[in-house]
């Protein structure tokens, strides 16, 4: 178990302890909520992990290294920002994909832009969830306000990368 996982476990047990102090019904609701989420998330995960692994097997390593490599600069950051918007699904899809890109030689700032583009643009999530709940005008305002931010994140990462020499090294 890594340090991050240990911290998370402590936080989870702490929060559950607080819920328990509010009374047994509160704790029961928390457990029921947790169980429902597990039932919802687990099928997604079981479907998404093989998908990410298959895609990684299919995507030629030199594609990621070339178009999104450390030498691709601002153009690579822009391509990655837009491409991120087309990654479907949640973190169970995007992060395994990014991991395979990094192993294939993609650049750090480009991967920061890819994740940011996925999170902010995420067209699949916008169509499936944001549009039905909040409406088209809201999406227009939000995309006008945040559409270019993935590129900004990539540029910031380019500046900060020298401070993180181990960012692209897997433990």
């Amino acid at each position: 178990m890594s340090i991050g996982q240990a911290i998370l476990l402590v936080l989870a047990l702490g929060a559950f302890g607080l819920a328990l102090r509010r009374g047994v019904p509160t704790a029961q609701r928390a457990l029921r909520e947790t169980g429902q989420t597990i039932l919802r998330v687990l099928p997604l995960l079981v479907a998404a992990l093989p998908m990410a692994a298959f895609l990684a097997e299919l995507i030629p390593a030199d594609l990621a290294a070339g178009w999104l490599g450390p030498e691709s600069g601002l153009a690579g950051i822009a391509i990655a920002s837009l491409a991120g918007g087309f990654i479907p699904g949640g973190p169970f899809v995007s992060f395994p994909l990014v991991l395979t890109f990094i192993k294939a030689g993609a650049g750090g700032p480009q991967m920061v832009a890819l994740i940011t583009g996925w999170a902010i643009l995420g067209f699949h999530r916008v169509i499936a969830w944001e549009w039905p709940v909040l409406g088209g005008r809201f999406i227009l305002i939000r995309l006008l306000a945040s559409g270019l931010l993935p590129i900004l994140a990539g540029v910031l990462a380019q500046w900060l990368l020298p401070l993180f020499p181990h960012a692209l090294v897997r433990p």
Binding site: S2, I3, G4, Q5, I7, L8, P91, F92, F95, P96, V98, L99, I102, G108, M111, V112, I115, T116, A119, A153, G154, L156, A157, L160, L161, L163, F164, H166, A167, L168, V169, R170, P171
Partner: peptide, 20 residues
């Protein structure tokens, strides 16, 4: 905490987090 740190490592996750 659940996805980025375990999968991509703490250093990359911190860099990405700061940029966001």
């Amino acid at each position: 905490l659940v996805w980025e740190v375990p999968l991509l490592g703490a250093d990359f996750a911190l860099l990405r987090f700061l940029c966001g």
